[in-house]
Design a protein around this nucleic acid. Structure first.
Lengths: 126, 126
DNA sequence: CGGAATCCAAAACGATACTG
DNA sequence: CAGTATCGTTTTGGATTCCG
């Protein structure tokens, strides 16, 4: 028996079902940078360079693709200010601020329980 | 420049820092199956076959590696009952039940806001 | 400054077949 | 039943260079 995922009027979404769109959304969020990128914008609009500096280790290419996916999915707004040194800002949409909450909860859990997890993490920093 | 993730006792973890172990844990959870697998065990111990049936579309190989990683990280306990038709159970540890909460929150958010996300998801599933 | 383009390496994922 | 072995595909991520 699977957990029913009743959304609105119709349907039972079974997150575990192969064709459930929930899976697509989950997949969208479940990658190395997305959750962090969203978190990095929680405090307000951020410029490309600022994000790249904050998400230490991300390459411009990956940052771009991450932001594009988020933009296409409606989590992020991209605003271009046509100035001479180009100025672009990325900002969470209403929806984006929405996911930011659960994601923040997850990040918080990780930070709190870090010591109890025993992956092969270089214990150096925690 | 970001505050490094200082160790142990006090510790400011900067999730965004390249070397923060938080990232390892996040990476561990951020993949196609992990979050679902944990969710699938929330109701109690599950057998390999049951999990495979529930996580529709997962191959035995991927399920195995997913479970192994979770076991190695301390989220899951694996118990073998040496019977003739072999019997193995996977069960969330205390820690596992811990992450299950934030992950459940995330799943719930996704289920609730599915309609507002506009990825190229086949709106079907219901 | 904000990327796009290119190339490459490494995971992650998947299908199938086979075994203790 | 619960995997392992193998192989191939796909997806991600990363480094670098270059351009408007």
């Amino acid at each position: 028996m699977t957990i029913a995922c009743t959304t609105g009027n119709h349907a039972q979404h079974d997150v575990y079902a192969a064709l459930c769109p929930c899976r697509d959304v989950l997949d969208l969020l479940a990658n190395k940078w997305t959750a962090l990128a969203i978190g990095a914008m929680e405090e307000g609009p951020q410029r490309f360079g600022a994000l790249q500096r904050r998400l230490q280790g991300i390459s411009p290419k990956v940052l771009t693709s991450t932001l594009r996916r988020l933009e296409d999915s409606g989590f992020v707004d991209r605003t271009v200010y046509p100035a001479v040194p180009l100025h672009v800002e990325y900002e969470l949409t209403e929806l984006g601020r929405g996911v930011a909450v659960p994601l923040g909860v997850l990040r918080a859990w990780v930070e709190t329980h870090l010591d109890t997890v025993k992956p092969d993490a270089p214990a150096g920093c925690a």
